[in-house]
Design a protein around this nucleic acid. Structure first.
Lengths: 113, 113
DNA sequence: GCCGTACTACGAAAGCTATCGTACAAGGGT
DNA sequence: ACCCTTGTACGATAGCTTTCGTAGTACGGC
């Protein structure tokens, strides 16, 4: 019995630090993940098309989870991720929306198709 | 004539990237600087009591400047810094205020005197 | 029981960051 | 002219980050 039903460590709401959240959001790949989750709600790690390898993807999801930005649960072979919107909104009102909006605005400016 | 009247390079508004701004804000020392400037308006580098050495202070101010978060000008022997509020508000509406408010709220929660 | 899918763990490499001390430059006041 | 204050430049160091490949585990379906 080496394995319990596979759970993942998440920081408690009171342990979430603004610096860590901002740091988690300061990487382009992770910003993309967060914006995807903001739009889609919940999704598996593989549902997002990222320009990095599988192991790097795992790494970024972990950074987001350990900073308290997302919650992850196993469901079959998949691992579903979703934003911890309630916790983040309670701790840092408006931050998540502001960042997501800012990122989308920047995308719109930059892509200039 | 090796030295022009001492100017400093600032990124153009269009060059400011959200990732860089978030990264600049993800350090406790820099967050403290930004919140101080948000409260005081303009101030010299030495006016803030930071828990790091002089050279480290210089480093953090430079990171903030190069990310486009602050503007710095020489005035006599002092170097005055101020937030680039107009640029930031135009690019990422609400971000600065949200972060400053979030930091203050976190301080209030954490210090629990 | 076996295979495929989904994800993880580990180890490695390259690069960046935060920190410091020391030595130096620029400017203002006396 | 000299010094004091303010900030910079440089070099060093320790630690973190991003990235990858490879090998492995967990689960569901056949």
């Amino acid at each position: 019995m080496t394995s319990q039903p596979r759970t993942l460590d998440h920081p408690d709401r009171s342990e979430i630090r603004l610096e860590d959240v901002l740091h988690a959001l300061s990487d382009p790949v992770r910003l993309q993940i967060v914006c995807f989750l903001a739009a889609e709600g919940e999704s598996s790690c593989s549902a997002i098309d990222l320009a990095v390898s599988k192991s790097t993807t795992t790494h970024h999801f972990r950074v987001l989870r350990e900073a308290g930005v997302i919650r992850q649960v196993y469901r079959g072979t998949a691992k579903m991720s979703s934003l911890r919107r309630e916790d983040l909104d309670a701790l840092f009102p408006g931050l998540l929306d502001t960042v997501v909006t800012a990122h989308e605005a920047q995308q719109a400016r930059t892509v200039t198709v």
